[in-house]
Design a binder for these strands. Structure first.
Lengths: 124, 124
DNA sequence: CACCTGTATTGATGAGCGTCAACATAGACA
DNA sequence: TGTCTATGTTGACGCTCATCAATACAGGTG
């Protein structure tokens, strides 16, 4: 799989950063394109199993975890693999193989962008 | 419809407030129950049309909007109604009929709870 | 090389979802 | 009462998704 189209919520910025795709939900009505982009990410977290996998990776020490560390979520191994792939395609996780094991880690800037999306207009 | 089971992400607190259902995603792995609860809300925002409707209400002046103000999202009227119902069931919106029109408003504490869910551990 | 463990892919199945046309309901007004 | 507008509900259709068993692939060890 190529590296393109993997971070829908973020757009690559110049050099070393990423910029959020969308303004806060409360700032103005989202356009169709913005909604399409942001919804992809909410959708990825809209499954209990995926949410648990994501939380397990995000809360694991070092911000990364081996599949074997987090696959105890009550579904079969292929299903775990399927969900991790979805999270990866949504731009929420990245993966890297190190020897026998595959490690997943969260994209911290994505978390920040999601937080901004839900931020309130100063004093609500 | 009764008033129960309408705010999955929040639990009614004593008297006048609500308390978030879950700790930040990054604090510790979510339990199955927590994930079930939080995923319901992410799922509700995981559709582009619903996200636009929600954003339209959230960004509308006074934090509320008549259906007629926000139903220009490219789908039929029954579909708009269907999505607003889903957002209501997810606890993200409340509705009130005033004469001919029905007004939807955001549950501000829910937005805050979602923001907390995605908050980073201080300095990430 | 063969064998074992960890992870990904394939293919199939059943459930759920988004959408619409048609119809129903609620309130305002004459 | 009847009629008009705004919104909700019903029923159906096609599509997507979550899940699993079976299989394939990758890397380590012997």
């Amino acid at each position: 799989m190529s590296n393109a189209k993997v971070l829908p919520l973020l757009e690559p910025a110049d050099g070393q950063g990423v910029a959020p795709c969308c303004p806060p939900l409360t700032e103005r009505p989202m356009t169709a394109e913005e909604a399409e982009t942001a919804a992809r990410m909410f959708k990825a977290l809209g499954d209990p199993v995926r949410l648990r996998l994501f939380s397990a990776v995000a809360s694991h020490e070092g911000g990364e975890a081996c599949v074997c560390d987090i696959s105890d979520v009550g579904v079969s191994q292929p299903t775990v693999s399927h969900h991790l792939k979805k999270l990866k395609e949504a731009g929420l996780l990245t993966s890297e193989r190190r020897g026998t094991w595959v490690y997943y880690r969260v994209e911290p800037s994505v978390l920040a962008a999601m937080g901004k999306l839900l931020s309130l207009p100063a004093a609500a």
